[in-house]
Nucleic acid binder design. Structure first.
Lengths: 241, 241
DNA sequence: CCGGATTTGTACGTATGTATG
DNA sequence: CCATACATACGTACAAATCCG
């Protein structure tokens, strides 16, 4: 682990332990560089991580203000798997493996991803049960060209864990979309939907670090169990085309 | 504007113009530093912005891969106002100013924000009409202690523009939450809801750079008109508490 | 209102480590 | 094993914003 990441973790825990309290300023970058015996640039990288993670806000000429973590830091943003979320929030739940087989990619997904219609994928469907009710349905399609094999045991555990720790592939980035759609027949069969007419659907295409596409995911949530929180920094008026 | 931001914009336009094509590698950091006559650190900062914005993916020992912008770069993420979104997507629409007056903060919001119940705020309600139907209802509450005055003309235009360009305040960060809720009586009165029973609600608390809270916003969307897209980078298994 | 001290922002140059091919 | 490319780290200098006397 690099020096600036260590320092990030150290200051993070100081903030969580209230050694540095919300509303106060952190020691200056020069003071911190003395404390940790590193150059100012290294401190600045650590502070950059704290900034991104929503722990501090910096202001030129003034200093780094510690934010109220309890208030802001519930980012369910970023590339987060269900398993990780569950672990981080101590939610007790159960995963039911509905399906795990190799198929040729469904046409509507091939179109969406702009890949050949005869691409081979693992089709993995998992139902997530909380308090006795199935509230999330995860449908994953993994390219066999990148991931040759997915054991049932791993599918029941965590796909990301399997990919990163067992296969040693590095996940790079994803494009993610959230919309609300009418519930399908499949939703009604596999989930506990009561009288809901709609579900929240998140679709993502996930890529490795070298930009190769390897996974398409559709996660279908019951309306009342869906919540998405993010911490956003302002970067000036939008330039996105 | 700083050097690395200039370079970011320059490379960005080269990517958009396909001078650098998707799937190819950018010139190395050393080559770029020669091209722009700056140090490698400056190039690295520019590449950092490209990375965050989803234009490239970097890999140690290999280089910086140009991503397919047309495919990934629709991030409606970050602190983006309706007006900015509309402009960036060339959506023709109309804003109806329903209300703009000073009130004491509603109790449920005071509780949510943990501020005193006698705080004074501007209450601004705007209905967003697209193709003749009101599909979004924006409810903004701005602290009078920070924003003394909000002219109707500015409310009809863009609040962020007013705050940043006219008042010269710097918006820092926000905590944002998305959930689906049953439609209220007010929703039904002000929006074109057909037979919808629910709406998507985004709530945010917006802060200035020095961390002072100055705005609470609730944006209520008709289900079929809501879509949220984000570009996410993997940062390793979640550490969020 | 001004000047000086402090603090963050930007930039440069150098050196070394690590991954890729 | 080597060349190349990105990652980390150090040190220096100056600019810009803030604060205070």
């Amino acid at each position: 682990m690099s020096r600036f990441q260590d320092i990030f973790l150290d200051i993070e825990s100081d903030i969580l332990n209230q050694q540095y309290k919300a509303g106060e300023l952190l020691p200056s970058e020069n003071q911190l560089s003395k404390k940790y015996n590193v150059s100012r640039e290294t401190i600045r990288k650590a502070l950059g991580l704290l900034l991104e993670s929503g722990y501090i806000s910096k202001k030129q000429g003034k200093g780094s203000i510690v934010l109220d973590v309890k208030r802001f830091n519930f980012p369910i943003s970023g590339l987060t798997s269900y398993k990780e979320l569950q672990d981080s929030q101590n939610i007790s739940s159960e995963t039911i493996l509905v399906k795990n087989e190799i198929i040729t990619i469904p046409e509507h997904i091939a179109d969406f991803l702009k890949v050949s219609t005869d691409t081979e994928v693992h089709c993995i469907i998992r139902a997530r049960k909380v308090d006795g009710e199935v509230v999330i349905l995860d449908k994953d399609y993994l390219f066999t060209s990148v991931i040759p094999d997915v054991p049932d045991s791993e599918a029941r555990h965590s796909l990301y864990h399997y990919i990163e720790n067992k296969l040693n592939l590095i996940i790079g980035f994803a494009r993610k979309e959230f919309i609300v759609e009418p519930a399908t027949q499949e939703d009604r069969e596999l989930m506990t939907l009561h009288n809901d007419t709609h579900v929240v659907v998140t679709r993502s295409e996930v890529h490795l670090e070298d930009a190769t596409l390897f996974q398409y995911t559709e996660s279908r949530h019951r309306l009342d169990k869906f919540r998405f929180v993010e911490f956003a920094r302002r970067r000036g008026p939008v330039n996105y085309t």
